[in-house]
Amino acid sequence: MAQSGASKVTPIHSDRILPAGAGAPNFTLHATPDQTLTLSDLLGRPVILAFYPADWSPVCGDQMALYNEILPEFQKFGAELLGVSVDGAWCHAAFAESRHLHFPLLADFEPKGAVAQQYGAYRDADGFCDRALFVIDKKGIIAWSYCSPVAVNPGADGILEALEDLPK
């Protein structure tokens, strides 16, 4: 759907997010109000970590809804997709239900944005996550990362290329 003009976008801080080659900081976050997910439990398969600013805002909805449609393509690589924002678990649950999302949305809620900060994907001035993507290999090393301007849905081409380039 329509993206707003690039001119309105605040500068990209792509040099700030953790680069390829860095170890992916481990975390445990709520995936639902009563369940948590720990990154290291997913060792052994690739993980796509998609930080996004917020549930419900139309641009984000598009990005998560798009990934939801592309899920079968990600699954061909055995990859696990995780969405992360500072929204709480109840908010995520309502959002996921409304969009029929088939992958977990993690709540980086308390302390707010702590995981995003470790990945360099937190916007202090705004109080929400950057639109930052990470592909983590099966050993827990970041294989690819990309930060999109907040108003631009980055699509999935970069993620798929990164998954393709992972050593088999």
């Binding site: 759907m1 993206q3 598009d62 990005q63 798009l66 449609e69 592309i70 393509e73 631009v152 849905n153 980055p154 699509g155 999935a156 081409d157 970069g158 798929l160």
Partner: peptide
């Protein structure tokens, strides 16, 4: 669809 995804269709 797949070709679109590969090309960066984002909505």
């Amino acid at each position: 669809f797949t070709g679109g995804v590969r090309s960066g269709v984002n909505g």
